[in-house]
Amino acid sequence: MSLPKVVRPLLRDEAYDHIRQAIVDGSLPPGAPLRDGDLAEQLGLSKAPVREALRRLAEEGLVDSKPQSYTRVSEVMSPDVLDAREIVRVLHEFAVRQAAAKCRPHDIAAMRAANDRFAKAIEAGDVKAAVKADDELHDVPVRLAGNAAVAATLDRYTPLLRRLEHARFSSALAWNSVLRHTKLIDALEAHDAATAVSVIATIWTDLLEDR
């Protein structure tokens, strides 16, 4: 038996990950021009993988591009963001509805621990850690739902909402999220699908309304 060789990550994927993170965390703010040469130099890459990364980010709505005119970071609010919010909300509703009957004590414990990390990150002003903990909390019902298409679609569209999360989690509104997380966890622990769906809908709807 022979094992396949380990393949290094594609440079275009590395470029994509780095540029996307900089857009999401605000290092590259809305409207910032994106020049492939400058980005390639900063990342230590050639222009080709950077151009491919920018093309992919444009398809995802994080970059605005007009051939021979401009390539820039998209605005935080756009039709793409509104559409993504609706898709993400509906899929999380599906996930918690499926997860409500499947949650076990260790799943609930994992969500409570994630919410504790989230609260501590908010208190410390560590938005990056807050986003990570928020992801870990919501990943539990998504995993329990057991639907690969749902998980993949969330992975595709959630980045469009990251900048809204960064703004929310750096403000006093973040404490509303702590409380709503607790209500969601309590509902899942009680196997109360209706309440869990109602709470998760509020979490994602208020990402835009509580601004």
Rank of each mutant, 00 (worst) to 15 (best):
D107T: 06
D107S: 10
I108H: 06
A109P: 04
A110V: 02
A110P: 07
R112E: 13
A113V: 00
A114T: 10
N115H: 09
D116G: 02
R117M: 05
R117Q: 08
R117V: 00
F118G: 02
F118S: 04
F118K: 05
A119P: 00
A121D: 00
A121C: 07
I122P: 09
I122L: 15
E123P: 00
E123M: 08
A124G: 05
A124I: 00
G125K: 07
D126A: 12
V127C: 11
A129P: 02
A129I: 02
V131S: 11
K132Y: 02
K132E: 07
K132Q: 06
A133Y: 07
A133I: 02
D134F: 10
E136S: 05
D139K: 00
D139R: 01
V140N: 12
V140K: 04
P141Q: 11
V142C: 05
R143D: 15
L144R: 06
G146K: 10
G146E: 04
A148E: 15
A148N: 15
A148F: 06
A151G: 14
A151M: 04
A152D: 14
T153A: 01
D155G: 12
D155V: 05
R156T: 10
Y157E: 12
Y157D: 04
Y157A: 03
T158C: 01
T158M: 11
P159Y: 01
P159I: 02
L160H: 08
L160Q: 10
L161T: 04
R162H: 11
R162G: 14
R162E: 10
R163D: 13
L164W: 11
L164T: 07
E165V: 01
R168K: 14
R168G: 07
S170I: 03
S171K: 02
S171R: 03
S171P: 08
A172C: 01
A174T: 02
A174C: 06
A174W: 01
W175E: 03
W175P: 00
V178K: 13
V178R: 14
V178Y: 09
L179C: 01
L179D: 00
L179F: 06
R180F: 06
R180N: 07
H181A: 07
T182N: 13
K183Y: 08
L184V: 03
L184S: 12
L184K: 10
I185P: 09
D186P: 07
D186M: 03
D186A: 09
A187R: 04
L188D: 10
L188N: 06
E189G: 02
A190G: 04
A190R: 12
H191E: 13
D192V: 01
A193S: 13
A193T: 08
T195M: 08
T195Y: 04
T195R: 14
T195L: 11
A196C: 09
A196H: 09
A196I: 03
V197D: 05
V197M: 10
S198E: 15
S198P: 09
S198C: 09
V199H: 13
V199Y: 12
V199T: 13
I200L: 08
I200V: 15
A201C: 10
I203L: 15
I203C: 14
I203Y: 12
W204R: 10
W204P: 06
W204I: 04
W204D: 09
W204M: 09
T205D: 15
L207P: 06
L207S: 05
L207W: 13
L208V: 11
